[in-house]
Design a protein around this nucleic acid. Structure first.
Lengths: 168, 168
DNA sequence: ATAAACTTTCAAAAATTCTTGGAAGTTTAT
DNA sequence: ATAAACTTCCAAGAATTTTTGAAAGTTTAT
């Protein structure tokens, strides 16, 4: 199989996976392309390789920078900006988790907490059930939050070791 | 705050969260509604409560059954079908993880494995880098797979206990 | 066999999300 | 100050996903 084919299939697969995780297809594709590229690429090169418009690539690159998944680079004597991916998969995971937590988990957590406060005076069976579900949900979110903190703080190898220990 | 308001806000919040996790808004809303309902509901009641069409609600209820998040129930002497949610948050999480793993992780895993096989004869620097990234990704997926197995097998309390122990 | 009660299907419409490309904005060099 | 080289913005268009609702399909009772 040629490198080019591999690259295409990988970009494609990453794109599919991305869309089911709330990441736009082109963001995932650009990310995949940069991941498989050891060095840096310019906006133009990305446009060319994936046949996307300048505006789109620009937007997507900014997003990826916002997620800390790629870095800007400059070359001396060249005014153009170049981009290079974070290649450490563990770091990638940490950043994705951090970002999603910030964007989705925290707001949900807040909403649940707020609703709980407004249910403290529950009386009838229905209200009690709602209260119960909110409290269950809240403690579940806390647990997941704790777990994600653990993941974020754990060293790459320490985590694996601990997981394996737990499974014994 | 009235129960009705709480319900609405919760349904709304759950809907938003759902869409960013690849679950359709109405699926998430119907799920939220059933979660807050201690008892069972008919298609009609769901339609009424959320102002959704019969077809949509029917489809969504079947999906939720497919995810094992709700159960069908029948009442003696009544031909209609009723639906009741799984109310144990831990079980809900287990089922969501199981389902997403089946639908998304496994195919990705397979693709990466396949691409790895086709890169075994890498020669130049580019090819070697692609090979390296695929292998890193593969081992990361394995680790996450292991972790998800752990989550799925762990008892509710045992998990929390272990997590806390790890964090000390 | 027929009707009534309920469920499922599916093609069209609506809503949402993503992409484009030209125009406006910046920065740097001269 | 001007031009050249890039980057960013954004409104319109394209693509995708979700929802609708009427029609077809099932099941049960009589």
């Amino acid at each position: 199989m040629k490198t080019e084919e591999i690259r295409q299939q990988f970009v494609q697969a990453w794109g599919v996976l991305g869309t089911s995780w709330g990441i736009s297809r082109s963001m995932a594709q650009v990310h995949a392309l940069l991941l498989l590229n050891k060095g840096e690429m310019s906006t133009e090169e990305v446009m060319e390789e994936l046949k996307l418009s300048r505006g789109n690539v620009n937007m997507v690159l900014r997003d990826l920078i916002g997620w800390n998944l790629i870095y800007k680079q400059t070359k001396p004597g060249d005014r153009k900006e170049y981009f290079i991916a974070e290649h450490d998969i563990w770091q990638i995971a940490v950043r994705v988790v951090t970002e999603r937590k910030k964007r989705e988990i925290m707001p949900a957590k807040q909403t649940v907490k707020m609703l709980m406060n407004n249910t403290s005076d529950a009386k009838d069976a229905d209200q009690l059930h709602v209260k119960h579900m909110l409290s269950e949900l809240n403690s579940f979110i806390e647990q997941m939050d704790t777990l994600s903190e653990l993941l974020l703080k754990a060293e790459k190898n320490a985590l694996l070791k601990n997981v394996l220990k737990l499974m014994s």
